[in-house]
Design a binder for these strands. Structure first.
Lengths: 154, 154
DNA sequence: GTAAATGCAAATGATTTGCGGCTGG
DNA sequence: CCAGCCGCAAATCATTTGCATTTAC
C-alpha cells in the first residue's frame, strides 16, 4: 500500500469523501476503489483501464458499475471526460485548469499548462454565442517517441 | 440545383476533383455526392446525417460507404473529424484554422475564429513534448437558446 | 427500513470488416 | 482489363439499460 504513505493521496481521498457526503452520494466500496485508482496517477484511463485495475482489489465489480460510477463522478464535477480520439472516452482526474497534447500517431494524451492562454479574453464572437463556462486547448502533433520512429523510416 | 449557381461551391468542387486525381482517388458518384453534401453547408454532420442527405440523390448508397468515404477524406486531409461529444463523430468541412463552441446542454457545435489565439506562441512545455502540428480551442458553455430555457425553469 | 447502488445479462448504437460483384481509369 | 470501390450482411466495440438483489445510511 504505497498509497497510504502519500499525504497528497490521503488529502484527495478525504476531500472525495467529504464531497460525497455533501452531495448525498453513498460511499460504497466500489466508488472508493474507483476513486483511489483514479487518484493514484494523473493518467487518462479508459473505463476498461479502470475496470482492470479495480478488479485486483474488488474481484466482483462489474464493468457497467465502472461506467455508471465514472458518469456519476463526472456529473458531480469530480472528474472530467475527454472524448478526443478513437471513439473511447478517457477520464481526467486533474481538475486544475489545463490543456492537452495529443499524439497523432500513438494517440497518447498528455497534460500541459498554458497561463498565457488562460489569461486571454474570449473573442466577441464567442461571448455573443452564449455563456462560456470553460475553455481548453488541444494541441495535435507527434510526440518525441513517435517522431523518432518516423525519422527512422525515412 | 441552387448549388450550380454558387461560384464558391464550384471552386470547392473543382478543387476536390483535382485533389482526388492528384492522389489517385477514384472519382465515384458516391464520393462526389458525399463531397457535395459536405461542401454545401458549413455544418458538423454525423455520418448518418450525410447518409440521409446523400440518399436523396443516390438511392442505393450504403451507410458503410459513407463511413469509408469520410475516413478516406479525413486521411487525405480533405475534412476534419470532431470527436467531442456523445460518442458520435462529426465532420467539419471548414478547413480554415478555427475553433469550436460547444453547448453543454444541446451539444450543438459552432465554429468561431480567434486571431489572438492563433498568434499566441505555444508554451515551452508543449514544444518540448514534440512537434506540434495544429492547435484548436474548445469553449464549453450554454448557447443563448439553452440559456433562455434554463432561466425559465428557475 | 428504504432509497440508492450494484451485478448480471441483454440491448443499443456507432463504426468496421469480409467478401463477392461492379466500375472508373 | 483489373485494382480500387461499393453494397450487403454480419461482426465488433464501447457504452447503456432493465431488473432483481444487496447495501449504506
Amino acid at each position: 500500500m504505497a498509497e497510504e504513505s502519500n499525504n497528497k493521496f490521503r488529502d484527495l481521498l478525504s476531500g472525495f469523501e467529504k464531497a460525497c457526503r455533501a452531495r448525498g452520494l453513498r460511499l460504497t466500496h466500489q466508488r472508493l476503489e474507483i476513486f483511489k485508482r483514479l487518484a493514484e496517477r494523473p493518467s487518462h484511463p479508459t473505463a476498461e483501464d479502470i475496470y482492470r485495475k479495480v478488479r485486483r482489489n474488488l474481484r466482483t465489480i462489474s464493468l457497467d458499475t465502472v461506467y455508471r460510477t465514472l458518469s456519476t463522478f463526472e456529473d458531480h464535477g469530480l472528474i472530467r471526460r475527454i472524448q478526443a480520439v478513437d471513439n473511447v472516452a478517457r477520464f481526467d482526474t486533474n481538475l486544475h485548469p489545463h490543456h492537452h497534447l495529443i499524439c497523432i500517431k500513438c494517440k497518447k494524451i498528455e497534460d500541459f499548462y498554458w497561463p498565457d492562454f488562460d489569461e486571454l479574453a474570449y473573442p466577441e464572437s464567442a461571448t455573443e454565442w452564449g455563456k462560456i463556462d470553460s475553455g481548453h486547448v488541444e494541441l495535435w502533433g507527434y510526440c518525441r517517441k513517435c517522431r523518432r520512429k518516423l525519422k527512422k523510416v525515412k
